[in-house]
Nucleic acid binder design. Structure first.
Length: 867
RNA sequence: GCGGGCGUGGCGGAAUUGGUAGACGCGACAGACUUAAAAUCUGUUUCUGGAAACGGAGUGUGGGUUCAAGUCCCGCCGCCCGCACCA
């Protein structure tokens, strides 16, 4: 008895697949045989798959697992389809978190970063990704960023980089610039100090010079999500309008405003300046009340959303400007908190009747609301503005020479008149601003320039690159450690030799990520990249990453590629031919009675479904599922997943269920389901209950009906999975393979005469699931007698003869309601189908003897009877 | 505020793009195996009336177009994301 039980348990253990062992085995074989290392091979079509490289924050998170699994599925699939696939990996390793870690844990950013990279590299390797690790790069290493400094010098020479000024959020206690996200309710996140706006000298890239090209390029990006293309279009936001110059009453000065609606100029009732406008600033010097108003405005921060959500506030400067079209009419000049300095001229004219913000402002300060555009269905004599501004097209009224025109014509006519009277001109304005690249931080690429009192700004000579970061820095004090360093910034001027100061700003890390994909093409030591390698691999055929990068990173990289092109580095316009943006990974949230967040792996569920915390023993409430985040503690560590279930099961779950562009709900039962499938396949294939034909057996010429329907299922599945993978429908691809597995389960024990088909089905299942679960698939491939790698095997081909069935099921409806189905030969005559449908019992019953009014027959699909 | 997206069983989601709503998975229930449990296997599972046969309703909501609407059009409701120094 006892022995039998032991035997059974042993037997059971044997049938559980040992993922850890198998995965390590194949990872080692792939690595030893350098399977995924590639060279430029012009005899084969190339395919460049790239996932957005990670910031080395410490350990990989589920978002990484999802992102890199998707990329790997594509890479392996394309590889099987015969492409020469480049699939590299690197580290976006400069950035603020390393400095925060330095501040909090007293670790040097370099040490912290490099240790994180080492951990995460191991973690990614244990996922079994088909990456060419010989091309690994890390942006914080001088051999990477020295080329970036070279590019900057070339940009400087080409006039694409310049020194300018911009407003920033300034924390007066930390002496540092704050990101918008670090400003919480107008205060610095760490110091709690009220944030000020400050005008800083900064380095800029002239992205606006490429505004039109970037805009037009969007049209060519056919394999980008429409959503992202729209977001970029809106970001650039090209708008045609007019520059208007208002004479300031009693001064020799003019006030420039930008407007898209010069047609509404007769409806103007005020002008408004941005609080950051130079005129507002100079007026404030003599007007303390205005000065304090400007400071109030400064507390709003620099983000557009904050400005537009805030209640409209203004300050009447007492200045008046003359209306350009109406002699003697004067408009008051306000400073208003909703006017952006960065957009247009930093000043507007307000037409309350036809702009909702202007209307809110006018109501508050009792300014005139003069309608000048009359809606098509309103009476011009009585039309008044109520709660809402009228912003649509209509007929111009109350506007002298513009009366009776439509909006479009009136805009043109008004602009012409402005030119005639020398008070303005038509102009194109972009919302897109030049890219400010200076950061007052330590952990970034140093800007390679020197400030000399006699020579001004002097570029560091190229032969002196890289300008490296000093290692001995302290993060205790406020401000930029580079600035505080005792010796680093003091250098001799390369031009005149006198004592000079290094630039202590470092680059925005978006620069690092604007060209890493070119560096992957060839890690040449002497140049940023080998030209012929870039010519071969670029553009990236499939780029995959989070939608949060839809605008900034992707727009900057598109700009940077063009800037490099114009500096003679390469001959590419668009860096990313195809883009896929994946959704986030979410998880339920848990809180105890006191509102404290509880980690999912600390939640215990008893048999009655009650949940308690394993740490405190207190009951836990289940909250809604949200994006995994450390602050809510609703995270599951991928390390645990890889350790418990292995990479294959984890990868499979990542690809199942949720469509890749949508958020994925991480559940324990979901990953268990994937693990069950792994074991089910193992039992089916590794321990088949009936024989499988030898690998060299000829294909059978005649097969039974069972075999025929099995083969039909096989080929339909190949066709479906292939098209699903092409279109990023991973969840459907998985469903199709599982469906085939279900059919296989029924078929698997059929007699020995089925051994040939059994081999075909097994091999197909293994090949189709291979991109998702590469390790176990490779193991099966070997078991099935192959002495070559599945990773090198071609994708299975479809025999079209099996795709078309000779019988079809046709739905029969009465007035659109399903009453039954009929089996008919494919492409049967409509008359025959109609008769068969009307002969159906359910149809006759429903018709109650009446004759059909009309019968619609859609071949091979549906019959709809209208009564 | 501006811009964008989403809404289908108890849950994640499918639906050949206007043609049988609910594939596949999770969960639940029942059965087989087991002393028992786990694992595995076999069923059932949109709701609702009915013993069944067979009906009725149903894709956030209200209208519309059509022989036919989850899918197209118009209006609401709800949720989510982005907005320039987080990467």
């Amino acid at each position: 008895m006892a022995r039998r039980r032991t035997a059974r348990i042993l037997d059971h253990i044997m049938t559980r697949y040992n993922a850890k062992e198998t995965e390590a085995k194949w990872q080692q074989i792939w690595s030893e045989r350098r399977v995924f290392e590639v060279t430029e091979d012009t005899s084969r079509p190339k395919y460049y798959v790239l996932e957005m490289f990670p910031y080395p924050s410490g350990r990989i998170h589920m978002g990484h697992v999802r992102n890199y699994t998707m990329g790997d599925v594509v890479a392996r699939f394309k590889r099987a389809q015969g492409f020469n696939v480049l699939h590299p990996m690197g580290w976006d390793s400069f950035g603020l978190p390393a400095e925060n870690a330095a501040f909090e844990n007293k670790v040097h950013p370099a040490k912290w970063t490099r240790e994180n990279v080492a951990v995460m590299r191991d973690q990614l390797k244990s996922m079994g990704l088909s990456i060419d690790w010989s091309r690994e790069l890390s942006t914080c290493e001088p051999e990477y960023y020295k080329h970036e400094q070279g590019m900057f010098l070339d940009f400087l020479e080409a006039g694409l980089a310049y020194r300018g000024e911009s407003w920033v959020n300034w924390d007066p206690i930390e002496n540092t610039v704050l990101a918008n996200e670090q400003v919480i309710d107008g205060r610095g996140w760490r110091s709690g100090a009220e944030v000020e706006k400050k005008l800083l000298h900064q380095w800029f890239f002239k992205i606006t010079q490429y505004a039109d090209e970037l805009l037009q390029g969007i049209e060519s990006l056919e394999r980008w999500p429409d959503k992202v293309r729209l977001m970029q279009t809106n970001w650039i936001n090209r708008s045609e309008g007019a520059r208007i110059l208002f004479d300031i009453v009693g001064q020799d000065n003019r006030l420039e405003v930008f407007t898209t609606r010069p047609d509404t100029l007769f409806g103007a009732s005020f002008c408004a300046l941005s609080p950051n406008h130079p005129l507002a600033q100079s007026l404030a010097e003599k007007d303390p009340e205005l000065a304090s108003f400007l400071i109030e405005c400064g507390k709003l921060g620099t983000s557009e959303s904050a400005l537009e959500k805030a209640e409209k506030q203004g300050y009447d400067t007492g200045l008046k400007v003359a209306h350009p079209f109406q002699d003697g009419r004067e408009l008051p000049v306000f400073v208003a908190n909703f006017v952006l300095m960065e957009y247009g001229a930093g000043a507007i004219f307000g037409c309350p009747a036809h702009d909702s913000r202007d209307l809110e402002f006018a109501r508050k300060y009792s300014l005139d609301v003069i309608p000048v555009v009359c809606p098509p269905d309103a009476d011009p004599a009585t039309f008044q503005i109520g709660q809402e501004a009228f912003i649509d097209d209509g007929t111009i009224i109350n506007s002298a020479f513009l009366d009776g025109l439509d909006v479009e014509t009136a805009i043109r006519r008004a602009t012409e008149r402005l030119v005639e009277i020398n008070a303005g001109e038509g102009t194109v304005n972009y919302r897109l601003r030049d890219w400010g690249v200076s950061r007052q931080r330590y952990w970034g690429c140093p800007v390679p320039v020197i400030h000399c009192e006699s020579c001004g700004i002097v570029p560091v000579p190229k032969e002196d690159l890289p300008v490296t970061l000093p290692e001995d820095v302290s993060f205790d004090g406020p401000g930029n450690p580079l600035d505080h360093h005792p010796s680093w910034k003091h250098v001799d001027c390369p031009s005149c030799g006198k004592a000079a100061i290094r630039e202590t700003d470092t680059f925005d890390t978006f620069i690092d990520s604007s060209w890493y994909f070119m560096r992957f093409c060839a890690l040449s030591p002497d140049s940023a990249f080998a030209r012929d390698a870039v010519d071969y691999w670029m553009p990236v055929d499939q780029y995959i990453g989070g939608v949060e990068h839809a605008v900034l990173h992707l727009l900057y990289a598109r700009f940077f590629t063009r800037a490099l092109r114009d500096c003679g580095y390469l001959d590419v316009d668009e860096p990313f031919a195809g883009l896929f943006t994946q959704g986030m990974v979410c998880h339920e949230t848990y809180r105890d009675e006191e509102g404290g967040w509880v980690f999912p792996n600390h939640v215990i569920t008893d048999e009655k479904g009650r949940k308690t915390s394993s740490e405190t023993g207190r009951p836990v409430q289940v909250g809604r599922s949200e994006k995994m985040s450390k602050s809510r503690r609703n995270v599951v560590d991928p390390a645990l997943l890889l350790d418990t279930y292995g990479a294959d099961a984890g990868r499979l779950f990542m690809m199942s269920d949720s469509p890749p562009e949508r958020d994925l709900e991480w559940t324990e039962s979901g990953i268990e389901g994937a693990w069950r499938y792994v074991n089910r396949l193992w039992r089916l294939i590794a321990e088949p209950s009936a024989p499988i034909a030898d690998i060299n057996t000829e294909h059978q010429t005649s097969v039974s009906a069972d075999g025929d329907s099995m083969l039909r299922a096989v080929h339909k599945t190949i066709a479906a999975v292939t098209s699903d993978l092409e279109r990023f429908r991973f969840n459907r691809a998985v469903a199709h393979v599982r469906e085939l597995t279900n059919q296989l389960s029924e078929y698997v024990s059929k007699g020995a005469e089925h051994d040939q088909i059994r081999r075909t089905v097994f091999e197909t299942v293994v090949q189709l699931i291979g991109p998702m679960m590469p390790h176990i698939a490779e193991e099966f491939w070997q078991m099935l007698g192959h002495d070559t790698l599945l990773a090198d095997a071609p994708w299975p081909t479809v025999d079209a003869a099996y795709l078309v069935d000779e019988k079809v099921t046709i739905a029969v409806q009465i007035k659109g309601k399903l009453r039954g189905t009929i089996e008919m030969p494919r492409d049967a005559d409509n008359k025959v189908v109609e008769e068969a449908a009307l002969a159906l019992d359910a149809v006759r019953r429903a018709m109650e003897g009446e004759a059909p009014k009309r019968v619609i027959v859609v071949p091979n699909k549906i019959v709809n009877v209208v009564v």
